[in-house]
């Protein structure tokens, strides 16, 4: 049931995704602030399919040369492509403190035992500025294979970006910067090079009192 209703291709499903800041309060307490978060969902057949977005509407927001979004989509499989619109929660006081930890955690599951590679490209005006590549091995748990990228440190570029964004006095200014800031995550089977999931992330600042929000879309070519 999760196919078409959550971030799931034929062979890999995203269970959880978060980018966060941990601030130690005292030796026993750590304050965790979630900038963005996709929680566990358990869709059923009665849930509606995700809305679709024509991938051509966003090609220019991501790398367009060799290995870019267009080429990746042409290679397929088409049901592995998603767009996530995040409303990031920036309602937090940031100070420079070396005891702070900026991290990203994500979890995936599969019926297959494999080794996955996750490439995360941060893009400005559609051009890649930094890339992180991570390799993850499966753990067999409760009848399926689980992949955990646990507390991966956020890179210096991203930490500086968040700090600069926070210094802007108005939300509309932050959104204007975020309009040209995107992230492309591609999860691949390391050995077969098959695309398992391709997730295009775009951002606005949350105005909600309930923290980070998101919408997930299927990407397709009409």
């Amino acid at each position: 049931p999760w196919q078409g209703r959550s971030i799931a291709g034929c062979k890999l499903r995203m269970l959880e995704f978060s980018a966060f800041l941990e601030q130690p309060q005292d030796p026993e307490t750590v304050n965790k602030h979630l900038f963005v978060h996709i929680g566990q969902s358990n869709p059923t057949y009665s849930d509606p399919y995700l809305e679709a977005v024509d991938i051509r509407q966003i090609y220019d927001k991501f790398p367009e040369k060799k290995g870019g979004l267009k080429e990746l989509f042409e290679k397929g499989p088409p049901n592995a492509f998603f767009l996530v619109k995040f409303w990031a929660d920036l309602s937090i006081n940031l100070q420079d403190d070396s005891s702070f930890f900026y991290g990203v955690s994500s979890q995936y599951e599969s019926a297959e035992n494999m080794i996955i590679t996750s490439s995360t490209k941060v893009c400005s005006f559609g051009k890649q500025v930094v890339e992180k590549v991570e390799t993850e091995y499966a753990r067999f748990e409760s009848g399926r294979y689980v992949f955990r990228i646990h507390r991966s440190p956020l890179c210096e570029y991203m930490i500086n970006f968040i700090h600069k964004l926070k210094h802007l006095p108005e939300k509309y200014m932050m959104n204007s910067v975020l309009e040209n800031f995107t992230i492309l995550q591609v999860v691949t089977n390391r050995d077969t090079l098959e695309t398992l999931l391709c997730i295009a992330y775009v951002f606005e600042v949350s105005t909600s009192e309930h923290g980070a929000q998101h919408h997930i879309y299927r990407l397709l070519k009409d």
Binding site: E51, V53, D54, Q57, I58, D60, K85, W87, F125, E179, N180, V202, E204, S206, T207, S208, H210, Q213, H214, H215, Y217
Partner: peptide
């Protein structure tokens, strides 16, 4: 926006793209 960049608002995107969920 620099020349050639089409604003997101000018693109064909679902209405929900501009509506922050209130959950």
């Amino acid at each position: 926006n620099p020349a050639g960049h089409v604003p997101m608002r000018a693109r064909q995107l679902p209405a929900s793209f501009w509506q922050e969920p209130r959950t």
